[in-house]
Simulated scan of single mutants.
Amino acid sequence: MNSTDIVWNDEARAKILDDSDRVLREAVLELSKTLEGHESDEAYEQLFARLKDRFIDFKPGPDIRKYADAIVAGDIAE
């Protein structure tokens, strides 16, 4: 077996992605209840803090900024 053959099967891969989407969604929804009208940087920092320890080798990308901006603008609907 080659090292490139060691991968998650499609079912496990889908579950991992679904779980990570759920973690992100829960963080965004929770923060949207308290940070509307605040500074986008504050929402970004709080999102980063909630997500960084939930993922292996977490590196924030533009999605975190997009959701932080939506939180403070009040653009999140449940």
Rank of each mutant, 00 (worst) to 15 (best):
F48A: 05
V72S: 12
A49C: 07
E30Q: 14
L35W: 02
L31A: 04
A70D: 12
A70H: 04
K66Q: 13
E42M: 01
E30I: 01
A68L: 01
L51G: 07
V28I: 14
V28H: 08
D63R: 12
L31I: 02
F48D: 10
R50P: 11
I56W: 14
R65V: 03
Y44W: 05
L35M: 14
I71R: 04
S40Q: 10
H38V: 00
K59A: 11
F58I: 12
I56C: 11
P60V: 01
I71A: 02
P62Q: 07
D69L: 03
I56D: 15
F48H: 09
L31T: 00
L35N: 07
K52N: 15
E36C: 03
P62G: 08
V72C: 11
I56L: 13
K66D: 13
D63L: 13
K33P: 09
H38Y: 03
S40R: 11
E30A: 07
K33R: 13
P62N: 09
F55T: 06
G37D: 08
D57P: 15
K33I: 00
L29G: 11
E42Q: 12
V72P: 08
D53E: 10
I56Q: 15
R65I: 04
K66L: 13
V72F: 05
T34I: 12
R54G: 15
L47Y: 02
L29A: 06
L35P: 11
D69C: 06
D63K: 15
L47G: 04
I56M: 08
K66P: 13
T34P: 07
E39H: 04
E42A: 06
D53F: 03
F48G: 01
P60D: 07
